[in-house]
Simulated assay, not measured.
Amino acid sequence: MTAVAVAPRSLVVLAGLPGAGKTTLLAGVDTGGASAVVLDSDQVRSRLRALLPSTLPYRIYRPVVHLVHRLRIVWFALTSSGLLLVHEPSTRGTTRIGLVAVGLLTGRARHFLWLDVSPEEALSGQVHRGRLIRSRSFSRHVRRAQRLRVLFAAGRPPRGWQALTVLTRADRLRLSVTPA
């Protein structure tokens, strides 16, 4: 069990390659009884899939899933009084900056969790869940993740983030809420 100390109203982002195992890790997170909102794009995808025709391919409504997911992040950052635990690959710099802005504007401490897996493990995870992303998109994620891994190996969080924790698939996560 990996214990991570966070402030009561933190924005905690669980990031990593698509297929790394973020959703699985989030499903087993222990918040120690602290109030927490967990936001995963799979929640939005599942709701939309139930409303839309079953023959409609995911690639058609994927942009809507991402938009609604990000709007939910902003909404809960503004309205929730507890922890906000967000699933987001965050390999793209603009995504990380946007999340930093949400944290700053809502007065939340920002903790970046990186689920570190090889591209092969992530691809295997995509196959296992039955949802592969396009190879060009995955290659971009991999290239950006490689740059992040260099930063993380030096123990430095991305710009604007106050803390960094690097996790593996074998880790189980416990968030310990400590006074700010």
Rank of each mutant, 00 (worst) to 15 (best):
R92N: 07
I73C: 11
H66Y: 14
P89Q: 02
L71R: 15
A101M: 07
R45Y: 04
W114I: 03
W75L: 13
A50C: 05
H111P: 03
E88K: 01
A101V: 10
T106C: 11
L67I: 03
L84Q: 05
W114M: 06
R47H: 13
R108Y: 09
L104I: 11
G103Y: 04
W75G: 09
L71I: 03
P63S: 04
H69S: 09
S54H: 15
V117N: 10
G107Y: 05
L52S: 07
H87R: 10
R96K: 04
R49P: 05
R72I: 04
R96W: 00
V74F: 05
V65Q: 07
A101C: 07
V64I: 15
S46W: 07
R47F: 13
H66I: 11
Y61G: 11
F112N: 01
A109R: 14
S81T: 14
P89G: 03
S90T: 00
R70W: 02
P63R: 02
A77H: 03
H111C: 11
P57W: 11
R72S: 13
V74R: 14
S54M: 12
L78N: 07
L48K: 09
S54D: 15
P63V: 05
G107I: 07
F112G: 02
G107K: 09
L115E: 01
S90Y: 00
A50F: 03
I97Y: 10
T91K: 00
S46M: 14
G98Q: 07
P119E: 10
A109V: 08
L78E: 15
V68L: 15
P119R: 09
I73E: 03
L84C: 11
R45V: 04
S54F: 06
S80A: 15
A109I: 01
P119S: 08
W75D: 15
V68T: 13
R72Q: 15
V64A: 15
L67D: 13
P63T: 01
T95S: 09
P53E: 09
S46G: 13
R47K: 09
T55D: 15
H66S: 11
V68I: 15
F76V: 02
T91M: 02
L67H: 14
A101G: 05
L84N: 09
L99T: 00
V100T: 07
V68R: 10
A50G: 05
V102N: 02
I73D: 02
F76R: 12
L99Q: 02
L67G: 02
P119D: 06
V100K: 01
R96P: 01
E88Y: 00
